[in-house]
Design a binder for these strands. Structure first.
Length: 929
DNA sequence: TATCTGGAAATATCA
DNA sequence: CTTGATATTTCCAGA
């Protein structure tokens, strides 16, 4: 403990420094100016300073919030999670979890505050600002968010390790990166550092973009532009941090490792992390479960907090601090640029920053809870510096939806689509390495994003950041940052900014290019696990958390002055050299559903398949336990490194009356398993197969088009979904409702149904529960839907938590689903994350809100309500379009009424022909099982 | 020369 | 506490 305290102190110092820097930030202000045009104005100006400040500012005010946080009792709710809980509060705001992280290290705390403040402030104020700003397309709208709620959602779980972490790390990095620009959105904070550090490099082109983009962001920053060079600078910074390297790591790692596992206790972390990597689903599952519960309570608390205090949000931002290098590097820079942020922050943040004392207080509190887990980590003075960055984050939030908010991919006439998906593998580079280039498309070339339905003549900007690819809600990845690539080979201009500790690449979307952008300027930077984990706020574990997604966002100005924010995420990208070389990866499956009889050959497309690869089908109980496991026969003759032909095993219960979702994965050995893929068993009679075709054929590409495209199969759904959902105004105020509607719509259209709502608790819980799923699920479910599906899988219910959490969480999820259904989001949404990060979801929702923002609160309510419905309705994860009926089965395969063979559709007939025998087999197998 | 990469050694962490 | 298996991070070297 003492140690922590010490650290805290340090932090404070740093903080102060930061603040000062912020003040200095006068320069920073300039940055704001940029932003000003759009973003800035919205946020900052009025909002930020005045409004935000007020709340936040006063740290005091903030403090209260802070205090709250502690009180949050997260702990109580979360128990160990408490931390998270606290964080959650913080998080809830924009900050996410990250903010929470603040726990241990001073930095964190600091950041959070800032962030919190900002975020909170932003939200509230934003609306106001927006009105004023109307012009700024982006900014304005964003404002609307109602953070409070959001916060609640995220809460604890959300904490956002990722975000915060990433941000932190990012920050440091960022500083190097970019810098600067970030202002626009966010915050000054970011910029400050960045700029300072930055320097350098801006590319002309970039500048140009920025300018062009300007509208969008204002990035301005030509000056900063220099910053562009980020990497280098970053590296350097990093070097400084050099310390960074390992020293810290050890401690950190261990800790988190603990976290991860223990995580179960502390929901946040573990859930995600563990799941992914490890095969040991069971463990994870458990964890998840635990988490869910926690979430619930935490979520609630968070929500309350949010409501009560805006400031809390800010806290989140502060959280991230971490990066040693960064800190140092940034610090200097901060002073310079901070100003802008500083203003916002400064006024706000400074205060917000919290006095050291305050911080310490928080820290202590947290520490009490979290600290134990995290505290151990020795902090490096350097690192502390980063905290400063935090502020920026907050800024961002004000205007635009926080990065951890789940947003729809389409709304009304608009649809943001990822026309070309990135390759499933991309080796990220460390700061100690040179760039490893831009993310490429599987078929060569680069990912392509396009905004459909936008007929205006004004160019927009697409934001790109690295998001998580786990079961939980989509959020900035704590261990990976987008890396701006420049050079002769890069045709797309881009500009880096930092939002909430997360590096964001801004790329112009020009009408002359049909609002289409080729993403050849985005690389992926890997931050050392030790650096990030150290952060107090961080809940996520870096180990085996090597999967990411590219997340694209566009903010479309609306006539009413609001801004419509759409988001699409890519298929998961494996960033680990080793994992990419050894872990089997299923990119596509020719069939996503088949009668229980089984027997049909399913072609899996992917990577790293071995002749002796095994394909295991698994049915999980709500609690994550494997109710049924069956090794599918593989066709060794047909084997190829990229293709695996498996015979669908008959389901254990041939009598299911409704579709049952199960999972399957490819296993190359002990710890070499692919993520869980989703497969649905249909009642013997049902003629469902239809969907298959599309799936089969659709390659990753399909996915691409849709957004997620995780799985081919999913795509179809997506398309459907997409079409269906589009609710024009939905995004806006109505936001939530719209979502609901969408959801319903979606569900219906898809087929499945209805039950998207199921997402709710159970789903969440499930998601959470099943660590493994998460990834798999995500992927599998091809579109957003997939997620849903996943949920179903897990199905189950975790009773307890769901409800409460559900309110908060669910909503988010729901919304997400809805939205996501449209776009990428789903995965995220659905996820379990919600549990973990209800808040995030909330935030996301808020995005919609943005337009609606004012109503957010109302919205929130709506969402909440809805969610519940959903939950109840469709616990089953089925929601995913795919399987309407599934739940039932899944939940209780048992019963199905004696098969109703009556209807045998044509397809069925065929199936039967082939499978009659199989059916018999199945029966046998079932018995065996 | 500066990058971009692929590979793999050196470390760390886990079991 | 040691050891083997894994996972992460740092280095090297070729293109």
């Amino acid at each position: 403990m003492s140690a922590p305290g010490e650290e805290q102190e340090f932090d404070f110092d740093f903080l102060f420094e930061f603040n000062q820097s912020d003040d200095l930030g006068g320069g920073g202000r300039e940055h704001y100016n940029y932003a000003s045009s759009n973003l800035t104005t919205s946020l900052p100006v009025g909002m930020v300073n005045s409004s935000l400040p007020a709340p936040c500012h006063g740290l005091q005010s903030c403090n209260p919030a802070i205090s709250i946080i502690p009180s949050t009792s997260h702990s109580s709710g979360y128990g160990g999670n408490n931390d998270s809980g606290a964080s959650g509060y913080y998080l809830s705001p924009n900050m996410r979890p990250n903010g929470i992280p603040a726990l241990e290290s001073p930095r964190i705390e600091i950041t959070p505050y800032l962030g919190m403040h900002q975020s909170n402030n932003q939200f509230f104020h934003d609306a106001d600002i927006e009105e004023a700003i109307p012009n700024s397309k982006r900014v304005p709208a964003t404002a609307t968010l109602n953070l409070p709620n959001v916060d609640a959602y995220r809460d604890p779980t959300c904490l956002s390790p990722a975000s915060s972490l990433s941000s932190r790390s990012c920050n440091s990095e960022a500083s190097s990166f970019e810098s600067n620009y970030s202002y626009p959105y966010t915050s000054p904070q970011t910029s400050p550092w960045q700029s300072p550090c930055v320097s350098p490099k801006t590319t002309d082109a970039e500048e140009g973009y920025q300018r062009g983009m300007v509208a969008c962001t204002l990035l301005t920053s030509p000056r900063h532009s220099p910053s562009t060079s980020p990497r280098t600078s970053v590296t350097e910074e990093n070097w400084l941090g050099a310390h960074n390297s390992r020293p810290s790591s050890p401690c950190n790692k261990r800790k988190y490792s603990l976290n991860g596992r223990q995580a179960s206790y502390s929901p946040h972390h573990s859930p995600t992390l563990s799941p992914q990597g490890s095969p040991r689903v069971s463990v994870t599952d458990e964890t998840w479960l635990g988490n869910t519960n926690q979430y619930t309570s935490s979520a609630i608390v968070a929500a309350i907090n949010a409501l009560t205090t805006d400031s809390t949000i800010d806290l989140n931002d502060g959280i991230p601090i971490k990066s040693r290098k960064t800190a140092i590097d940034h610090t200097p820079s901060l002073a310079l640029k901070m100003e802008p942020a500083g203003d916002d922050l400064g006024t706000t943040s400074p205060a917000a920053d919290l006095t050291p004392e305050e911080f310490s207080g928080f820290q202590h509190i947290r520490k009490g809870n979290f600290c134990d887990q995290y505290l151990s980590v020795p902090q490096h003075p350097y690192q502390w510096a980063k905290p400063k960055n935090m502020p920026p984050t907050s800024y961002m939030s004000p205007t635009l939806p926080a990065l951890d908010w789940q947003l729809p991919s389409h709304s009304g006439p608009y649809e943001l689509r990822l026309e070309v998906q990135p390759k499933s593998h991309h080796r990220a580079h460390y700061e100690t390495e040179g760039s490893r280039g831009a993310v490429k498309a599987s078929a060569g070339g680069h990912p392509i994003v396009q905004l459909h339905g936008y007929l205006e003549s004004e160019p927009l900007t697409v934001q790109l950041f690295i998001g998580t690819a786990d079961d939980r809600l989509l959020r900035p990845h704590a261990f990976y940052q987008v890396h701006r690539i420049t050079g002769k080979t890069v045709s797309t201009t881009s500009h880096e900014t930092i939002l909430s500790n997360t590096k964001v690449l801004e790329i112009p979307l020009l009408p002359e290019n049909n609002m289409r952008a080729i993403i050849d300027c985005a690389g992926i930077l890997k931050l050392r696990n030790s650096d990030i984990e150290l952060r107090k706020g961080e809940t996520d574990i870096g180990r085996k958390n090597t999967r990411v997604r590219l997340v694209f966002r566009v903010h479309i100005p609306q006539p009413n002055g609001r801004t419509l924010s759409l988001q699409v995420s890519s298929n998961p990208i494996e960033c680990s050299q080793r994992s990419a070389q050894e872990l089997p990866l299923v990119e596509k499956q020719s069939i996503d559903s088949f009668p229980v009889i089984g027997g049909k050959k399913m072609v899996l497309s992917g990577h790293n398949f071995l002749q002796d690869s095994k394909v295991m089908f698994v049915e999980k109980a709500p609690d994550g336990h494997h109710v049924w496991e069956m090794e599918a026969k593989t066709d060794k003759e047909m084997f190829k490194p990229n293709t695996l032909v498996v015979e669908i095993p008959s389901f254990r219960n041939p009598r299911i009356t409704s579709p049952v979702q199960v999972n399957f994965y490819v296993c190359n050995g002990k710890r070499k398993r692919s993520q869980f893929q989703i497969f649905t068993y249909l009642p013997a009679n049902v003629p469902i197969i239809k969907t298959e075709p599309s799936d089969d054929y659709e390659p990753a590409q399909t996915c691409g088009p849709l957004n997620q495209g995780l799985s081919p199969l999913s795509k179809p759904y997506y398309s459907q979904q997409i079409v269906m959902p589009p609710d024009p105004g939905s995004c806006l105020v109505a936001g939530f409702t719209s979502y609901q509607q969408r959801n319903t719509v979606m569900s219906s259209s898809p087929t499945s149904s209805p039950k998207l709502h199921d997402l709710s608790p159970s789903a969440y819980s499930k998601c959470i529960m099943n660590p493994g799923h998460s990834q798999l699920g995500l992927q599998q479910p091809p579109g957003g839907i997939p997620t849903l599906q996943e949920v179903p899988r897990s199905i189950v219910v975790h009773p307890s938590s769901p409800d409460q959490s559900s309110h908060i969480m669910l909503q988010p999820q729901v919304s997400q689903h809805l939205s996501s259904s449209c776009s990428l989001g789903y995965q995220q949404t659905l996820y379990p994350n919600s549990p973990s990060s209800p808040v995030p979801s909330v935030t996301q929702d808020s995005t919609y809100l943005q337009s609606c923002s004012p109503t957010r609160s109302s919205v929130m309510g709506q969402q909440q309500h809805q969610p519940p419905k959903v939950q109840r309705n469709d616990p089953p994860t089925n929601q995913p379009l795919s399987l309407p009926e599934l739940h039932e089965d899944s939940n209780h395969n048992l019963t199905p009424i004696p098969v109703t063979i009556k209807r045998e559709p044509e397809e069925l007939d065929q199936l039967y022909l082939d499978d009659v025998n199989e059916i018999i087999r199945n029966d046998l197998s079932c018995t065996n099982v």
